[in-house]
Design a protein around this nucleic acid. Structure first.
Length: 290
DNA sequence: CGTCCAGGTCTAC
DNA sequence: GGTAGACCTGGACGC
């Protein structure tokens, strides 16, 4: 593997980013076209860059993210890879306010040393589609669907245009998406023909959470759970992702017998704009604890 | 074999 | 605005 670039593992506020404590969430890192190995921790993923399939490995060395591939890349293409890595680790986000908040916290002080990066997909489009693939089905089905999508993209996640140009029968007969197929196809077509710009949800300092949530809820197949999940990946960490995995997991971690959603929300309300992130870290601590 | 349900959402009241 | 029922699929169950 040839090193193509290295990026300091620091957030926008200069805060450290712990590669080992970068967690994935429902829809992204551990699913095709990506894989995580540990140890040593390595994150592998297949990209399509200028039409070419490129296998990439990401790992940490001396507080830097090494992005490596054997594929010969032009400078501009390396730039695209860097941009993808930046989106995945959200280097543009400043988590230092969150760290200041949990520094003295009983349950989350451990996170202040660089945890809290939730690995996103290179595109919001991919995050949205994958999130739909997590709804109302077993985890094995989610993996099957996303693997089918990656196969369609020859290893990389298919671009909107590719999905839009795919016969609707493929979604049912090959990807076995059931009723989700129509949602995915509809979103892909809207993005491909330009009437929907999901990537714009990323920048938008001017956009408030409520606006982004509204845009996400307007998408077919995205409801309260899906919107909350995608918003985490957009760095909007207030909303808690409440679903049939997080609810029972919360009971296990907290030792409670039962807890209504409102109760869970209340107990994380003290984290304010980071309540959803605090909740996710609380639930996934056993993923990163060495 | 039928029923239930899994990391929910939509539609119709 | 809140709440049933339906919804693709395919494992995990009970009978």
């Amino acid at each position: 593997m040839t090193r193509v670039c290295e990026i300091a593992l620091r957030g926008a506020g200069g805060e450290p980013i712990s590669f080992a404590r970068t967690v994935y969430s429902h829809g992204c890192a551990h699913l095709a076209p990506a894989s995580v190995s540990s140890p040593p921790l390595r994150y592998r993923r297949t990209f399509r860059i200028d039409g070419r399939i490129v296998d990439v490995t990401m790992r940490e060395r001396s507080r830097k993210l090494l992005v490596e591939t054997d594929a010969p890349l032009r400078r501009r293409q390396i730039g695209k890879l860097e941009a993808a890595a930046a989106r995945m680790f959200r280097f543009d986000a400043d988590l230092s306010p969150f760290y200041a908040l949990v520094e003295t916290d009983d349950t989350l002080a451990w996170a202040a040393s660089g945890a809290g990066r939730i690995l996103a997909s290179p595109s919001v489009f991919e995050d949205v589609i994958k999130t739909i693939c997590t709804t109302n089905c077993a985890w094995s089905a989610t993996i099957r669907m996303t693997q089918a999508l990656a196969a369609l993209g020859e290893g990389a996640f298919p671009e909107p245009g590719r999905l839009a140009a795919t016969d609707e029968r493929w979604f049912g007969e090959v990807a076995r998406m059931g009723y989700r197929g129509a949602y995915v196809l509809k979103i892909a077509r809207a993005v491909a023909n330009g009437e929907l710009d999901l990537e714009r949800l990323r920048d938008a300092r001017r956009r408030c959470d409520a606006e982004v949530e509204e845009s996400l809820l307007a998408l077919p197949g995205i409801g309260p759970y899906g919107a909350a999940h995608v918003m985490q990946l957009l760095g909007r960490h207030r909303a808690l992702v409440l679903d049939s995995w997080t609810r029972p997991k919360y009971l296990v971690v907290s030792g409670r017998k039962r807890a209504a959603d409102s109760t869970i929300r209340r107990s994380f309300a003290r984290y304010g704009a980071y309540a959803g992130l605090a909740f996710w870290l609380y639930l996934t601590r056993d993923w990163v604890d060495e």
